[in-house]
Design a protein around this nucleic acid. Structure first.
Length: 645
DNA sequence: TAGCTCTAT
DNA sequence: CGATAGAGCTA
C-alpha cells in the first residue's frame, strides 16, 4: 500500500458491520427488483420464451409489460387494443380471477369484469419462492412488495472480507487486543484492476476519477457484495426462471435508485466516490418518497426546474427546507438529496394486513349483489390467511383481529367501518368473517341512511395478525382439539414437509414449465395426495375421507369432504387441485419457519466484545444534521409527510 | 381505535 | 389504471 496512506475507515467501523449499524459508512445494502414481475410470472406459467412479447392483462388494461413487448413501444396503462396494434404478436395473459360462486380463483379465458374479481395469488406464490432464495442467502431482508426487496449485506461482506483477506482478520484481532479499534485501517493491497466487479459500475465523479485512485475498503466490500447479489440473482434465474435487477450501495435509497440504473437483468454498483455525480443526474422525484404530493409541493414552493434538478436543490439551505417542511421532513430532504439515508433495513416477514377489493364496472345497485361480493372477499381473504398468513410455531393459522369494510358510492362519498373480529376457531373463521362483514355493511348502510347505491367500489381488509410470540387462546384451543381428536398436528405438519422435500429431491427440475408454476408440477401430487389423504377427515365423525371414493362418508355430503388442514369443504373433483394448494402452503410454512429461525439477530462473536459505539460517519457539514437525534430518517422515508403548513 | 390520507408497485 | 400494501395524521 502506498506510503503514509491509510484507509478512510477505522477498524471500529469495519467491525461494526456485524451489528448492522445504520450510521456505519461501510455498510452494504442491496435492492433487488424483479423485471416486470407479473409479466414474467405469466411467461413462466405458460412456458413461453422470455423473448416472446407478453403483457399481463387486467380487464381491458395492461398491468405489466415484459421487456420484449416494451421494444414495441408498449407500456402499462394502455388498452389491449392499442397494444395489439403496436405488436400483433403480443401475448396477452389475463390475471387469474375469482368467479362468483366459485370456491377458488383460476385462470379464466374471458373473465367478465361484472362477475369476476382479480386474484394476485399466483404472483404471491412465486414471490414467496423468490423470497425464500433471498432469505437463504441473507438473513436481513426487507419485503418491499411482491417484486422487490432490500438486503442488508453488511454482516455477510464483513465475514467474506475476513475470510478472504487473512491479513485483515489478523490485524483486526490485534487491534482489538490492543484496544486500538479507532485506528484507521491500512488500505487494502489491491489495485483498481485487481477488483473483479459483478455488474455495472456507476461512473465515478470526475474529480475523483484519478488514475492512481487508491482502492479502499468500501470498494472491496461493494465488490464482495456484488458477488453475493450476482449469486442470488443466478439462483433466482436458474432455479425459478426469473430475472431481476439489483443495485448495491451504501443505503436503501441509493440502492433502490441504483437497481433501476440498468433495467432488465443486470445489477449496478454505486461506489462511494460516484454518489454525488450519480445523484446529480437524477430527477429528484425519482427518490423514494418524492414521487407524489410532497415532491410536487417542493417543486412548487422552491420553483424547482422542470427536470427536477438536484444540483438546484443542493443550493437550498437546510434552514429553508426546515422552514418550509418542518423539522423532520426538512432534515430528511436535505440529507436525502445528498445521498444520505440512515434508515434501517427492517427484516419484515409477516404480512400485516390483507385487502380484497373490487371496482364495480357496472356499479352495483342491490344488496344481493353486494352480499355476493362480500362472500368472494371473504373466500379470497380466507384463502390468503391459509396460504400466506403466518402460521404459529405449532402450525396453526393466525387469526386477524380486525376487519375493515370500505364502501364507495358512485356519486356520494366513501366511508369505511371497522370492528374487532369476534373470537372464533380456525374452523369458524370463514363464517365469522362473513358474518362480521355483513354487520359492518349494515352499519355503513345505517350511517348512509340506506343510500348505498349505485356503489362504485367495495373493499374488505383484515389486519392485526398475532405478532409472533403472544399466543391466541382460541388458536391453542383449536390446536389441542385437533391433536387429540385426530392426530398430532406437529406430526402432520412434519409429514407434509417431509413429503415436500422428498418430492423436491426425487424430481429435481422438471421438464415442462407450464405446470411447474403454482406447485402444480407435481405429478407427485398424486403420491402427495394419497398420503396426505390421511389428513383429510370428515369433521363430523373423524372418519377418513380420501379422494379415492370413500363410500363411508356421511350421506349429507356425498360429493365432498372436509379437509382437516384447512377446515374447508372440498369437492372430490377438486381434491387434487386442493392438495396442490396445500403443497404450496407447506412450502410457504416451511419457508416461514426458516425465516423466523434466521431472523434472530444472530450476531456471532468471533472477535470483539468490548466494542462500544461505532464512531461512524465522519462526514462534514450536514453530519450533525444527518445523525442528529431527531433526524433519524427512517421515520420519514415512507408514508405521509407533513406538507407545508 | 376509527377513519382518512399519502405513497408506491 | 386497478388491486394491494404499508404507514402516518387526526380526533
Amino acid at each position: 500500500m502506498s506510503d503514509g496512506q491509510h484507509s478512510k475507515f477505522t477498524f471500529a467501523q469495519f467491525e461494526s458491520l456485524r451489528k448492522y449499524s445504520t450510521t456505519n459508512p461501510l455498510r452494504v445494502i442491496a435492492h433487488i427488483d424483479l423485471d416486470a414481475f407479473y409479466a414474467q410470472c405469466e411467461t413462466v406459467r405458460l412456458g413461453l420464451d422470455p423473448n416472446v412479447p407478453l403483457a399481463c392483462q387486467q380487464w381491458q388494461g395492461l398491468i405489466a409489460v415484459n421487456y420484449a413487448a416494451r421494444k414495441f413501444g408498449i407500456s402499462r396503462h394502455e388498452t389491449i387494443t392499442e397494444a395489439r396494434k403496436k405488436c400483433p404478436g403480443l401475448v396477452l395473459a389475463h390475471v387469474a380471477t375469482w368467479k362468483e360462486g366459485d370456491a377458488k380463483w383460476d385462470y379464466h379465458d374471458n373473465p367478465d369484469i361484472a362477475t369476476h374479481k382479480v386474484s394476485l395469488d399466483p404472483y404471491r406464490r412465486q414471490s414467496q419462492l423468490i423470497f425464500k432464495i433471498f432469505y437463504d442467502s441473507c438473513g436481513k431482508v426487507e419485503y418491499g412488495g411482491l417484486d422487490e426487496a432490500f438486503l442488508d449485506l453488511s454482516m455477510l461482506v464483513y465475514e467474506k472480507a475476513c475470510a478472504e483477506y487473512s491479513k485483515l482478520a489478523a490485524l483486526l484481532y490485534l487491534k482489538q487486543e490492543e484496544g486500538r479499534m479507532n485506528d484507521f485501517m491500512p488500505l487494502p493491497e489491491i489495485s483498481q484492476e485487481g477488483l473483479t466487479w459483478d455488474g455495472e459500475l456507476v461512473p465515478l465523479d470526475p474529480d475523483k476519477d484519478t488514475p492512481d485512485r487508491a482502492v479502499d475498503w468500501d470498494d472491496v466490500l461493494f465488490m464482495l457484495g456484488s458477488k453475493i447479489i450476482k449469486g442470488v440473482r443466478n439462483k433466482v434465474r436458474y432455479e425459478l426462471k426469473y430475472t431481476c435487477s439489483a443495485g448495491i450501495a451504501q443505503n436503501r435509497v441509493l440502492g433502490k435508485l441504483c437497481s433501476a440504473y440498468k433495467k432488465p437483468n443486470n445489477q449496478t454498483i454505486l461506489r462511494h466516490d460516484a454518489v454525488r455525480r450519480f445523484i446529480a443526474t437524477l430527477n429528484f422525484s425519482k427518490i423514494r418518497g418524492l414521487g407524489g404530493k410532497l415532491g410536487h409541493e417542493i417543486s412548487r414552493h422552491f420553483s424547482v426546474p422542470e427536470d427536477g434538478s438536484i444540483p438546484f436543490l443542493l443550493q437550498i439551505s437546510l434552514q429553508d427546507f426546515v422552514l418550509a417542511l418542518g423539522d423532520e421532513t426538512g432534515n430528511w430532504l436535505y440529507n436525502i438529496i445528498r445521498g444520505r439515508d440512515a434508515s434501517d433495513v427492517k427484516p419484515r416477514t409477516e404480512i400485516k394486513s390483507m385487502l380484497s377489493a373490487k371496482n364495480f364496472r357496472p356499479n352495483i345497485v342491490t344488496y344481493q349483489q353486494a352480499e355476493k361480493w362480500l362472500r368472494i372477499f371473504v373466500a379470497d381473504i380466507m384463502g390468503r390467511i391459509l396460504e400466506f398468513g403466518n402460521s404459529t410455531p405449532g402450525g396453526a393459522i393466525r387469526i386477524p383481529k380486525t376487519l375493515v369494510l370500505h364502501h364507495r358510492h358512485a356519486n356520494a362519498g366513501s366511508s369505511s367501518r371497522q370492528i374487532a373480529i369476534p373470537a372464533c376457531q380456525s374452523s369458524n373463521l370463514e363464517d365469522t368473517l362473513f358474518h362480521t362483514a355483513k354487520v359492518l355493511y349494515r352499519q355503513i348502510e345505517k350511517e348512509k341512511e340506506g343510500s348505498m347505491y349505485p356503489c362504485y367500489q367495495m373493499s374488505m381488509a383484515v389486519s392485526g395478525f398475532d405478532s409472533t410470540v403472544s399466543r391466541n387462546h382460541a388458536i391453542e384451543g383449536f390446536l389441542v382439539k385437533s391433536a387429540t381428536k385426530f392426530e398430532d398436528v406437529e406430526e402432520s405438519v412434519e409429514r407434509e414437509i417431509t413429503q415436500e422435500t422428498s418430492v423436491a429431491k426425487s424430481s429435481p427440475s422438471k421438464k415442462g414449465s407450464i405446470d411447474e408454476f403454482l406447485g402444480r408440477e407435481q405429478q407427485l401430487s398424486n403420491n402427495c395426495y394419497v398420503d396426505a389423504g390421511l389428513n383429510c377427515q370428515d369433521t363430523a365423525d373423524g372418519k377418513t375421507a380420501s379422494a379415492i371414493g370413500d363410500s363411508s362418508k356421511s350421506d349429507s355430503d356425498i360429493d365432498s369432504f372436509v379437509c382437516s388442514d384447512c377446515a374447508k369443504r372440498i369437492k372430490f373433483e377438486d381434491a387434487e387441485e386442493h392438495q396442490d394448494w396445500h403443497f404450496a402452503l407447506s412450502v410457504a410454512k416451511k419457508f416461514r419457519q426458516e425465516k423466523e429461525h434466521q431472523s434472530q439477530p444472530s450476531v456471532p462473536p468471533p472477535i470483539s466484545q468490548n466494542e462500544k459505539r461505532d464512531t461512524a460517519v465522519k462526514r462534514k457539514a450536514g453530519n450533525s444534521v444527518c445523525n442528529g437525534p431527531s433526524s433519524k430518517g427512517p421515520k420519514l422515508e415512507k408514508g405521509q409527510r407533513k406538507l407545508f403548513g
